[in-house]
Simulated assay, not measured.
Amino acid sequence: MKKYRVIFILLLSLLVLSSTIQAENKKPSPSDKQKANIPNSVLDITKENTYPNPTQDLPYLQPSELTQELIDTSKVEIENPNLIRMLNESTMNKSPFSIGMRATIYLGEWPLNYSSTETAPNWEYQKINTNYYDNRSGKSNYKLHYVQEAQKKVNGGLTAKVPHSEDVQKMMLLKAMEKTKLPLSFKTIIGAGTKKDQVYNIEPKRLGYLYAYAPAVNEKGKITYGEVYLVMKGSKRTIVVKNVTSQGIGAWIPVQDHVSFGFVASDSPR
């Protein structure tokens, strides 16, 4: 009986150890990523916005078969959509007469990839509107609604000047959109006359202020640059990256067609 008990304990220990190892080795899948937690004070105004913002549709550009083969030969990760597009548009036939041919083609210095270290939303990035009502002489609650008094353009951008800033912005935007699942754009416009049905009650003998803010995401990370060469030896094609450098970079990226509200009731003017 004692012998069977020892065997049972050993088997149980092995089972627990196996489960622990599997749990530690399990990596979160892309579906495990959580959408940014939007506060109740932030409302979607896509339908109400009197200015139709263009939808930011930035799908990941799929490399062609040849481009993928070239990217796989690089020791530095390449994810710049514009560089991938240029390689996709290139044609290089493998001719049997290319034996002995040697060539090195300089493709220029490129921002090759962006690594995100922090993505943090600021729900009150920029004040865009104030609605006000004085109910100090009123005898009942006054229902205050949001009405955008003037068209407001909200711009984001990089926090520092870097080479090929448009390419860098595109890579940062893609990464931030992937992490937050929010409709992000480096420019968004809230049209005059945009309204929302949300009610904010102002009690008698009080003044009410309804502040509206455009939210944005603060994206921070590291951009990697390098000089890209296409090397051809016979029928073999490879990409070689030289003089690799990295630098920290940040950006503010507005959340498109979203407004954050803050309501304050006061006894005296603010």
Rank of each mutant, 00 (worst) to 15 (best):
K35D: 11
P63Q: 06
T73C: 01
T91D: 08
Q56E: 12
T50S: 08
T46P: 06
T50I: 08
I78F: 00
S41E: 09
E79G: 10
T73K: 00
P39L: 10
I84E: 00
E65I: 07
I78T: 01
D44I: 03
E89W: 12
D44C: 05
E79I: 09
N49W: 10
N82W: 07
L58Y: 15
N88F: 06
E48Q: 15
L61T: 10
E69F: 03
E65H: 06
I71R: 02
K94Q: 10
V76M: 06
N37I: 15
N82K: 06
D72F: 01
V76T: 13
P59K: 06
N82I: 08
E48F: 13
T91F: 11
I84D: 01
E48L: 09
I45W: 12
N93K: 12
Y51C: 04
E77D: 07
P63H: 05
L66S: 02
N49V: 11
S74E: 04
T46G: 07
T91W: 05
N82A: 11
Q34Y: 15
I84T: 00
L66W: 01
P59V: 04
T50R: 11
K35Y: 10
P81W: 00
P39S: 07
V42D: 02
L58A: 08
K35I: 14
R85F: 11
V76W: 01
S74R: 04
P81A: 02
K75H: 09
S95W: 15
P54K: 14
N80T: 01
D57G: 04
M86P: 04
Q56T: 15
S64P: 02
P52T: 13
N82R: 11
L61E: 06
L70Y: 00
Q34W: 14
L58I: 13
N53S: 12
N40M: 13
S95C: 13
P59W: 04
P52D: 11
T50G: 09
Q34F: 15
Q68A: 15
Q62N: 13
E79A: 12
E89P: 08
Q34L: 15
N53W: 04
Y60G: 10
K75M: 09
I38Y: 04
M92L: 14
S64N: 08
I71H: 00
K75Q: 11
M92P: 02
E79Y: 03
L66T: 03
P59E: 04
Q62G: 06
R85T: 14
M86F: 13
I84A: 00
R85P: 05
